[in-house]
């Protein structure tokens, strides 16, 4: 509830700027509205199916399932599960933090949890679709292809140096 007034505040600011521009530079103001309209239409053309997918993911792959699957899987299977569950999750990264903690507590390896966190942050199927739409398939797929090995390397490095020393170790 706290966020809404802030956004509204900015929106009103834009509205004022738009009206001022319309008064002093009508051509510029028109151009701005036309550009925004183009983007709005592009957004609306892709939004409904993405919303449906987001809802389906959230309900059919609940957090409890993710925790159960990742808690028991290990080895390459664990990596695969970490990647798959990371892509199916919804919401920003900080939603994944508590899931990661409970995974560690349930005995999932640090390597897998690190993969899970990074994948959750960067690779989500609806987001990839958005990226293809607005940045192009070449851009999106190349970035995806480079991100996956980067995540594996980051997780391997974090795991090698056993970096979760301060808090979690006490719980395990």
């Amino acid at each position: 509830m706290k966020k809404v007034p802030k956004v509204l505040f900015f929106l009103i600011g834009l509205l004022v700027a738009q009206l001022l521009l319309a008064f002093y530079y009508p051509l510029r103001a028109r151009e701005i509205l036309l550009t925004s309209k183009t983007y709005l239409l592009e957004m609306l053309s892709i939004l409904p199916p993405i919303l449906i997918l987001v809802g389906l993911f959230e309900v059919w792959v609940p957090k409890s399932v993710i925790t159960r699957l990742l808690g028991i899987a290990s080895g390459w299977k664990g990596v695969a599960v970490a990647v798959l569950t990371g892509t199916a999750g919804m919401g920003p990264l900080y939603v994944a933090f508590p899931i990661g903690v409970s995974l560690l507590n349930k005995g999932a390896s640090l390597f897998n949890v690190a993969i899970f966190l990074c994948v959750w942050a960067s690779i989500k199927i609806p987001m990839v679709l958005f990226e293809v739409k607005f940045l192009g398939a070449e851009f999106a797929l190349l970035r995806l292809a480079l991100t996956v090995p980067a995540i594996l390397l980051i997780a391997a490095l974090l795991n090698t140096f056993r970096l979760n020393t301060s808090r979690i170790q006490g719980n395990l």
């Binding site: 701005i32 550009t35 987001v54």
Partner: peptide, 28 residues
């Protein structure tokens, strides 16, 4: 799941409008 979709839509509608309008200003 449709209710989740709607909730998501409600949470993102205004920020999306804001960013799209901002794009118009930036490009214009």
């Amino acid at each position: 799941s449709l209710r989740v979709s709607l909730k998501f839509l409600r949470s993102m509608a205004l920020p999306t409008l804001l960013i799209i309008w901002t794009i118009g200003f930036v490009l214009g």
